[in-house]
Amino acid sequence: MKPEAAHQADDDAAARRRVVVDLGMRSYDILIGPGLVDAAGEEIARRLPGVRAAVVTDETVAGLHLDRLSIALRAAGIDHSTVVLPAGEPTKSFEHLTRVVDAVLAQRLERDDAVIALGGGVVGDLAGFASAIARRGMRFVQMPTTLLAQVDSSVGGKTGINSPRGKNLIGAFHQPALVLADTALLDTLSPREFAAGYAEIVKYGLIDRPEFFDWLERSREAIFAGGPERAEAIRQSCEAKAAVVAVDEREHAGRALLNLGHTFGHALEAAVGYDSRRLVHGEGVAIGMTLAYRFSTELGLCPAADAGRGEAHLRAAGLPTRIAEIPGGPLSTAQLMTGIAQDKKVKRGHLTFILTRGIGQAFVESDVAPAAVEAFLDRELAR
């Protein structure tokens, strides 16, 4: 290694942050900072000695980062193959799941070997599910390349694919052995993709960390500009999620709070057929969180000023906050109610929503009247 490269590696290592997801014998590290693609072989080999791997990625990410990861894995003596999938939400399907599992089995990887997910939430969810079912459970490393994946989908062990009947309805809880969140990769994201990921950061403040939301209001511009505030926002987001996952790994109670905005957001995604030209996940979450706050206001739970404050911050970040902002034609209350009825939090036919009493005061309401939701959506769609 050249002296300049060695100095850069040292600087990158010094800038890294570490968050631990405390799950007893299945605890794992989240490493956050620049240079982690180049350090991936070393970090994986240290924790999983002797491992062989299948790297799962998509066509877009492969063109940007796959060569560097392969070099790092080879340097650490990690034998590996690659599976390159089409980019986009439609890839979270049985067809592509079968392709990944077949590639893993064809390579004769064993249970103690690993699937490495290099990509955004789609790749992470699908590759994680493949690792959960191949040989009844293999090890799994998350290398999220988008902001949304770094702060949300790569942490906590939710894996899966979509069904025509709804988003993420087929899957398993399967924790990774390691998460490597290389913040330098975020510089390759489009402004739209970065803003979509930022919606998930805002979510943690709106759920139960009002002081974090205050800090985001002051720090948003620096986060978008790529200053040290960016890595700090990712660290705090991962720390918030890790704390929830540690006490409710399988979403029996408090972990449901992490779905603030997602009941509405997933219904919106399903209604547009998961067409990323119209709506990406983070945009659906932004609209969904705004809807959850406004619905809470209509129910007399949340001050209108707090709902307005959350919406203003999301809009300042370049995110949509109204259903009417989704391009491509109008949606209907019936479409959205069909998606909401398929939400994974529905229990024995009763609708469950994450509602709020104000900034950082979200709670789970497990018996929301469908008629109230329908009336609210009718008004929102008429805006």
Rank of each mutant, 00 (worst) to 15 (best):
A40C: 06
A40M: 10
G41M: 05
E42S: 07
E43H: 07
E43G: 01
I44G: 05
I44N: 03
A45T: 03
A45N: 03
R46Q: 06
R46W: 01
R47D: 03
R47Q: 12
L48D: 03
G50R: 01
V51N: 04
V51C: 09
R52G: 09
R52N: 13
A53W: 07
A53S: 13
A53N: 08
A53P: 11
A54P: 05
V55P: 11
V56R: 12
V56N: 13
D58Q: 08
D58S: 11
D58K: 10
D58H: 07
D58R: 10
D58N: 15
E59R: 11
E59F: 05
T60L: 15
T60W: 13
T60M: 15
T60D: 09
V61E: 12
A62S: 15
A62T: 11
H65F: 14
H65M: 10
H65I: 07
L66D: 13
D67K: 08
D67L: 08
D67Q: 12
R68Y: 06
R68A: 14
L69G: 07
S70E: 09
I71M: 08
A72V: 07
L73N: 00
L73R: 00
L73H: 00
L73T: 00
L73G: 00
L73F: 00
L73M: 01
R74V: 01
A76K: 00
A76Y: 00
A76N: 01
A76M: 01
G77P: 00
I78H: 01
D79N: 00
D79Q: 01
H80E: 01
S81F: 02
S81T: 10
T82F: 03
T82C: 14
T82L: 07
T82G: 05
T82A: 13
V83R: 15
V83F: 09
V83Q: 15
V84H: 08
V84D: 07
P86A: 06
P86V: 08
P86G: 08
A87Q: 13
G88M: 02
G88N: 04
E89M: 02
E89Q: 05
P90M: 05
P90I: 02
P90Q: 04
P90S: 05
P90A: 04
T91L: 06
T91R: 06
K92F: 00
S93G: 06
F94G: 02
E95M: 05
H96D: 06
H96F: 15
H96M: 12
L97C: 02
L97A: 03
L97N: 02
L97F: 02
L97V: 02
R99S: 06
R99A: 07
R99K: 11
V100R: 10
V101T: 15
V101E: 10
V101D: 07
V101C: 15
V101I: 15
D102N: 12
A103R: 15
A103F: 12
V104K: 05
L105R: 13
L105Y: 12
A106P: 03
Q107G: 14
Q107T: 04
Q107E: 12
Q107I: 03
R108V: 10
R108T: 10
R108Q: 13
E110L: 14
E110H: 11
R111K: 14
R111I: 09
R111T: 08
D112A: 12
D112V: 07
D113L: 09
D113W: 07
D113N: 13
A114T: 09
A114E: 03
